[in-house]
Simulated assay, not measured.
Amino acid sequence: MQHMDILNRVKADTQVLAFDIFGTVVDWHGSIMREVQALYPHVDANAFALAWRAGYQPAMARVRSGELGWTRIDDLHRLILEDLLPRFGLSHLSEAERVHLNRVWHRLDAWPDSVAGLARLKQRFTICSLSNGNLGLLTNMAKRAGLPWDCVLSAEVFRAYKPDPTVYLGVAKVFDLSPHQVMLCAAHHDDLAAAGACGLNTAYIERPLEFGASQIKDVSPQPGNLLHAHDVMGLADLLGC
Rank of each mutant, 00 (worst) to 15 (best):
P112Q: 03
R9L: 13
L192I: 07
T166G: 15
W111T: 14
W28F: 15
T126V: 10
N140T: 11
A54T: 03
A116T: 06
A187Y: 02
S214F: 12
I127F: 04
D83G: 06
A160R: 08
Y40M: 07
V99N: 04
D27P: 07
R78E: 14
K173D: 15
P221W: 00
W52F: 13
L108W: 01
C185Q: 01
P41M: 09
V43S: 12
Q37S: 12
R72H: 05
Y40L: 15
Q123Y: 02
M141G: 12
L108V: 09
G69A: 10
L7T: 09
G136P: 05
D44Q: 03
Y204S: 12
G196D: 13
Q123E: 08
M33C: 11
I6L: 10
A229V: 11
V115D: 06
V157D: 09
E95V: 10
G69V: 02
C151D: 11
D75Q: 13
Q37T: 15
A51G: 07
L177N: 06
L50V: 14
R53H: 06
P148M: 06
D109H: 04
V157N: 13
V99C: 08
D150R: 01
D237K: 00
G224F: 02
L90H: 00
Q181M: 15
V43C: 13
Q37E: 10
V152I: 14
E67M: 07
L227A: 14
P58R: 00
M33S: 03
L79G: 10
H92Y: 01
A49L: 05
L7N: 08
L169V: 12
G224K: 00
P112V: 09
W111F: 15
V25N: 07
M4V: 12
A172M: 02
C128P: 03
V152N: 09
G133S: 06
H189G: 08
V152F: 05
H3G: 15
L68T: 05
R98M: 08
A197N: 14
Q2V: 11
L101D: 11
H180L: 15
A119E: 06
V219A: 08
V26G: 05
A116R: 00
K217A: 15
S91A: 14
H230I: 14
A38W: 00
L209S: 10
S31H: 03
W149C: 11
K162N: 14
S131V: 02
D109N: 12
G69L: 09
A59E: 07
G146M: 08
A142V: 07
A142K: 01
E97T: 02
S154K: 03
Y56H: 03
S31F: 01
L177M: 08
G199V: 04
R87K: 11
I21P: 03
G240M: 05
N134E: 03
A51V: 06
A236Y: 01
R124Y: 03
K217M: 14
